[in-house]
Design a protein around this nucleic acid. Structure first.
Length: 834
RNA sequence: GCCGAGAUGGCGGAAUCGGUAGACGCGUCGGUCUCAAAAACCGGUGGCCGCAAGGCCGUGCGGGUUCGAGUCCCGCUCUCGGCACCA
């Protein structure tokens, strides 16, 4: 009989796979059934899977976003089938500069614009079958939320971790606000890549994240995070071990002053031939002699004004001026000159260095330019010649590594490592220094002079000074300002609202003014994952019992671009919350994964201006959500970058259609009696269940799909009328996390009346999951000569006998009997001749 | 400059413990169906030599270890990402 004829006839009576006709229907039913709603259930293992809090942009989602959301959704669905209680929420990081800038550009108030954008994101997410628990949706710009953001500010304040300070800060003229260090990239604003950040002296609010620098660094070792992110955090925190050394100097008026410096190389102190202070160093004024004063002041002004632009050029020539003052090198007993230069930063270490031009490239460049002495005190290697152990200016090697100390008095001859210890001991004994650790990390600047953020809950009272807003008065509502655009004078738009600003002091009832700055958006996103555990709690930021059950996050997923901003801040918050007894963990996310970047077909980043954005909407309209989902995961590994290439989607489209045909073919799945190939198919099924489960667990969706394709192809080829229905039902279950709509439709078509998404993940029989026969490679001298098929577990003698019997092998063995035979059971035999 | 990740057919990728390189797809070529086309289905498809049987070469480059290397070691090249005067 012609099976094709039969197939055609059958297909005539069967429904065809038309995604648009089924997807909306199931999305609605799942909502009605509250299928993805999570409740606390101590009897089941929990899993909290969270994606980075997105800012809902007016551009909507692209398939690039889907590369993040679809695989994680698949993973959640897989876990649910495994009986895990999964928390998978979604919300909106709706406060902040991007939202406000977009609103200004479109001339729509952000309070109006952002909910519209969020609704569009939600629509697009639903469209792709993403299984979020929408009953837990949160919005950082909602007073119900930012009330608690303000509460956390007060917590920081109470714990002495929020403080006000004046400092020169990065200012973006386009954003019209101060930026955090983390938001300045190469001197440019992170939001305006062609806008150089400028310096501005302003009084700002800071969080004392540096108090936690050490733990933020060491605890990285316990995290299951991608290595690049860990490396970036380590670099950002930038721990340096060394010593603080006090240099005695004389002020212009003859008084004595101590200038502490930080160095990682105390072993080179005999080579310290001058000191360099940052131009902003507080002692500069007192040190400078009258004859140098004019030049020093001029240099200070110049570096204050334009250093941010010129400091960018790394190949820029060093600049600096002498103060005319001197300090005593405590080891050489020499008076060494004190200079100021902008290559020394006021905000790092002590803002002053001992310059060792012989063994530091920067100091060396500086010394050469200004003709300051360069002295060699370290020699490469272990050999030293006592005869030549002296001052050798011609030996100026510029060596910066480890070696032997020379020209260093009683320390000469020591290794630099040993020398460091001994010098520090000597410093301690003489009371002029001690071991010190310095971090590159700076405190987190959290105030922003912008409208669209949570107002900082502080008032300034003429009598009482800085007064925190009492908790019961929260939220400090963001006033509905019509003119919220920044004025450009460095003041927040909130300052223009007298109604907002003028209040009575909570302490004394006298006249007071509100703080008008708003909080950095990264404060909003530092605790949102806890709000998801009890999003509607009206009395607390989160319910401790809910947090104890769900938190910390089991798997946190997002792009690598937040490596040192959000991911550092939210770790800091967790530690503070733990210290305050609010949570029982110190790390908010044990496991982190970064999805790869999706590029457009032209290899460029997807962006509206390049007109290369592919939206999920367009792909869903053409192929359906299930094909989009499956293709995104089939393209390559989750964490690898990818280029959107629509031609490839045909492969998964064909596969889904083959599966559809298979599951709607009524000749199959009739009586469950064994056909001829039944055993083989059953084994394939068990093998596939094992493989797909393992791959899903490890986030290897591409190879899981590949295995499912192989299994489907096998079933399609096997046109056995009596196929066991479990062969196909289990295929549908395994595909349910990938293609939730289609498998649901087919599940019902096959006579089931409950959702496939409530089914358990199929189990496999490990006996049946192994092949009965194996192919064994036969090599001669390591070269493949034949492949033989044998029963699994055949003994060595048998395998060798069959291998030698092969004509292809015998030809290469000739008459020699092998000198050695390598045997790997069920895999390989290698005959080694001579 | 420093830190990190990577390089496999025409393309996306697979090979999870040092053991059959190229699974699964895309594309392409040939075939079936069709008046024709599309779709679908079947088959071939790393390169070179050969009528064939078969052989040789092949995982960025150069060495090494090993019976055997995409995988391990040493030395490079290129691509991407991060940091960048942090003493």
């Amino acid at each position: 009989m012609n099976s094709k004829m039969q197939g055609n006839t059958a297909i005539g009576d069967r429904p065809r796979y038309i995604p648009v006709e089924i997807e909306e229907k199931w999305q609605r039913r799942w909502d009605e059934m509250r299928l993805f709603h999570a409740e606390i259930d101590p009897s089941r293992p929990k899993f909290y899977l969270l994606e980075f809090f997105p800012y809902p942009s007016g551009d909507g989602l692209s398939v690039g976003h889907s590369k993040n959301y679809v695989p994680t959704d698949t993973f959640c669905r897989f876990l649910r089938m495994r009986g895990v209680n999964v928390l998978h929420p979604m919300g909106w990081d709706a406060f902040g500069l991007p939202a406000e800038n977009e609103a200004i550009l479109k001339q729509v108030h952000p309070a109006e614009n952002t909910p519209k954008n969020a609704a569009n994101y939600k629509r697009q997410m639903r469209l792709q079958g993403l299984s979020y628990d929408w009953e837990r949706e949160i919005d950082a710009s909602n007073p119900d939320y930012y009330r608690w953001t303000q509460w956390f500010f007060l917590l920081m304040y109470k714990r002495g971790l929020a403080y006000r300070a004046v400092a020169a800060q990065w200012w973006c003229p386009q954003c019209q606000t101060i930026l955090a260090n983390e938001q300045v990239e190469n001197g440019y604003c992170w939001r305006h890549t062609d806008q150089l950040a400028e310096r501005k002296e302003l009084e700002q609010w800071y969080f004392r994240i540096t108090d936690y620098a050490d733990e933020l660094l060491t605890a990285l070792d316990e995290l299951d995070w991608p290595e690049p992110i860990l490396a970036m955090q380590r670099n950002w925190i930038g721990r340096s071990e060394g010593a603080r050394i006090d240099f005695q100097a004389t002020r212009a008026d003859g008084s004595a002053v101590t200038i502490p410096v930080f160095t990682t190389r105390p072993d080179t102190i005999f080579g310290a031939t001058f000191l360099v202070l940052s131009p902003e160093h507080p002692e500069v004024d007192g040190l400078t002699t009258d004859e140098h004063r004019a030049r020093v002041i001029q240099y200070q002004q110049q570096s204050g004004l334009e250093s941010e632009i010129t400091r960018l050029a790394t190949d820029r020539e060093k600049t600096g001026v002498s103060t005319g003052a001197h300090a005593l090198n405590p080891f050489t007993r020499e008076q060494i000159p004190i200079w100021i230069a902008d290559y020394v930063l006021v905000s790092y270490g002590t803002g002053a260095i001992m310059a060792v031009p012989g063994h530091d490239e920067r100091d060396r460049e500086f010394a050469r330019k200004f003709h300051l002495p360069i002295r060699t005190v370290v020699k490469e290697g272990v050999e030293i010649d006592p005869e030549r152990d002296g001052y050798e200016p011609e030996q100026d090697s510029g060596y910066t590594g480890e070696g032997r100390m020379v020209s260093s008095g009683e320390f000469s001859g020591l290794s630099t490592e040993e020398g460091r210890r001994r010098i520090v001991e000597a410093l301690k004994e003489r009371g002029i220094g001690q071991p010190a650790i310095t971090y590159r990390l700076r405190d987190w600047l959290v105030s922003r002079q912008r409208y669209w953020g949570a107002p900082i809950p502080i008032v300034y009272c003429d009598g009482c000074g800085i007064v925190p807003v009492p908790e019961e008065d929260l939220p400090v509502l963001l006033p509905a300002l019509e003119h919220y655009q920044p004025a450009g004078d460095g003041r927040s738009p909130l300052a223009t609202s007298a109604e907002f600003v003028n209040v009575t002091c909570p302490d004394c009832g006298g006249p007071a003014q509100r703080e008008t700055d708003t909080l950095d958006t990264f404060v909003d996103s530092s605790w949102y994952y806890l709000r998801f555990t009890s999003p509607h709690d009206a009395t607390r930021p989160f319910d401790p019992a809910a947090a104890r059950y769900w938190a910390p996050i089991d798997l946190y997923v997002g792009g690598a671009e937040h490596a040192v901003m959000h991911l550092l801040y939210f770790r800091f918050f967790a530690k503070v919350m733990n210290d305050a007894g609010l949570v029982d963990f110190r790390e908010p996310a044990i496991k982190l994964r970064n999805q790869g970047q999706m590029h457009a077909a032209d290899g460029q980043r997807m962006s509206k201006s390049r007109r290369n954005v592919v939206t999920p909407d367009s792909v869903v309209a053409q192929y359906g959500a299930d094909a989009l989902r499956t293709y995104l995961m089939f393209m390559g590994p989750f964490d690898a970058d990818a280029e959107w290439d629509e031609t490839g989607i045909n492969g998964v489209w064909r596969w889904l259609n083959r599966m559809w045909d298979l599951a709607t073919d009524d000749r199959r799945g009739g009586n469950g009696e064994s056909g001829n190939e039944h055993e083989e198919l059953l084994r394939a099924m068990h093998r596939t269940i094992r493989k797909v489960g393992q791959d899903f667990e490890a986030f290897r969706f591409n190879t899981a799909i590949s295995a499912l394709m192989e299994y489907t192809n096998l079933l399609s080829r096997e046109r056995d009328d009596s196929t066991d229905p479990a062969l196909i039902d289990n295929l549908l279950k395994m595909c349910a996390p990938l293609a939730p709509h289609m498998t649901e439709e087919l599940w019902h078509h096959r006579g089931h009346d409950t959702s496939i998404h409530l089914e358990s993940w199929p189990s496999y029989d490990s006996e049946l999951a192994v092949e009965t026969t194996v192919t064994v490679a036969v090599q001669v001298n390591g070269k493949l000569r034949d492949i033989i098929t044998l029963p699994r577990g055949a003994n060595r003698d048998e395998v060798e006998r069959v291998a030698r019997a092969s004509a292809k092998v015998a030809r290469f063995l000739q008459d020699n009997s092998p000198a050695q035979t390598i045997y790997v059971p069920d895999r390989l035999v290698n005959f080694v001749i001579r």
